[in-house]
Design a protein around this nucleic acid. Structure first.
Length: 103
DNA sequence: CATTTGACTTGTG
DNA sequence: CCACAAGCCAAAT
């Protein structure tokens, strides 16, 4: 079976170590899909809320979550990240500290 | 096949 | 820091 782009993205996301985060653009790039950050977001948008993949480790390039503050998804993701020992500053993650740039 | 859409990114002011 | 615009590209309609 031919691996779809979606599956490559899954693989990259699974390879993100706990306690680290990655941006959409970076995930896309590592998946061999440069400039397809939006595609990554669309793939994630189809994930069931209880999906086993660590989608919460993927945030945007500003170090913020791509949801409205206070929304269900925002809160869920924030809690998940905090569970990974990732600290928030004014609803933002310090990318200098937590960004995973590959192996 | 044309148009719209979207969990994005970067630049400008 | 916030708002807006343009660039980008795959999937959905």
């Amino acid at each position: 079976m031919t691996p779809t782009n979606r599956e490559r993205v899954w693989q990259v996301i699974h390879s993100i170590p706990a306690g680290k985060v990655c941006t959409y653009g970076r995930v896309a790039e590592m998946a061999g899909l440069p400039r397809q950050a939006r595609a990554v977001g669309r793939y994630l948008s189809e994930l069931p809320k209880d999906s086993k993949i660590p989608w919460f480790r993927v945030i945007n390039s500003q170090g913020k979550l791509s949801f409205e503050v206070g929304s269900d998804r925002f809160v869920t993701q924030k809690l998940k990240l905090q569970d990974e020992n990732i600290a928030f500053s004014n609803n933002k993650v310090n990318l200098k500290t937590y960004l995973w740039q590959g192996e």
